[in-house]
């Protein structure tokens, strides 16, 4: 049985969250699962997206919603009252011969298992989503660098989806016709406070990874080197307007 590092971070600043994931990807030699929350609402956009096509920038500026470009592809995400996971794993073991598309489905399994253990009828929807009914509860994005993969993704707990739709350039007519495209855990799991849902979800996700990937977790924080690297990456990338507004080489 292999041992993975487990990092549980409470609410951190949006640009710091992205910087820590990137620092772990660059430096770690051991598989690392990080679970974290957000100190304030924020939007991340995919590496290949144009900020002006995805986000109502002026409204975000007015409401102090930072917009951060991720290292990973995928779509724009409004982060608010969600649990985010990031997994950094060498391209070995279960991910050694796995195509990118297949690895999305592999990593979705413990997340689905965790949600089902909380009574949520979650299903995998290729390429990178987990849905309940036809509404998305979790989306993920992956990059591969230096022989490792980084996959991070959200599990919506109590996200204000009305607010989300204000900031993202989703056609309101489409929402009217097709309904709300996302669903949160607090809409499904009744009788629990938001904080209790977070607590249960963290337990369910860690035990599902343990069970499905047959691993032990050693709880730790980021190393000093990762911390220093994250400070540098936050400064030069994730809190830097040049990176966030224009696609540059990572």
């Amino acid at each position: 049985m292999t041992t993975w590092r487990l990092i549980i971070h409470n609410a951190c600043a949006p640009s710091w969250n992205m910087a820590v994931d990137s620092a772990i990807l660059r430096l770690t030699k051991i598989p690392t699962l990080r679970l974290y929350r957000w100190s304030k609402p924020a939007i991340t956009i995919g590496y290949f997206q144009d900020i002006e096509k995805e986000v109502h920038i002026e409204l975000c500026q007015k409401d102090d919603i930072p917009v951060i470009r991720r290292l990973t592809g995928g779509g724009a995400v409004f982060h608010h009252e969600e649990l985010t996971y990031s997994l950094v794993h060498p391209l070995q073991g279960p991910f050694g011969k796995s195509s990118i598309t297949h690895s999305y489905s592999l990593i979705a399994q413990p997340l689905i298992h965790a949600l089902r253990s909380m009574g949520v009828d979650a299903q995998y929807r290729p390429i990178n989503d987990i849905i309940v009914g036809n509404r998305k509860i979790s989306g993920s994005a992956q990059t591969r660098k230096e022989g490792k993969l980084l996959q991070h993704g959200t599990i919506l707990v109590a996200t204000d989806t009305e607010k989300m739709l204000q900031y993202l350039t989703i056609d309101p007519k489409k929402i009217k016709q097709e309904g709300n495209p996302v669903i949160t855990l607090s809409e499904i799991v009744k009788g629990l406070s938001k904080e209790s849902i977070f607590e249960q979800l963290i337990k369910a996700v860690t035990s599902s990874f343990k069970e499905l990937f047959a691993v032990n977790f050693e709880e730790a924080d980021i190393t000093l080197q990762e911390n220093d690297m994250a400070i540098e990456l936050e400064r030069s990338y994730f809190s830097n307007e040049q990176w966030n507004c224009r696609r540059l080489s990572p």
């Binding site: 290949f48 096509k53 990118i100 992956q142 990059t143 696609r247």
Partner: peptide, 16 residues
Amino acid sequence: IHISGDFFLYPEEAIG
């Protein structure tokens, strides 16, 4: 030409 969207491409910098 500028190609953008919510797709994935590896390695990312190859889009350029």
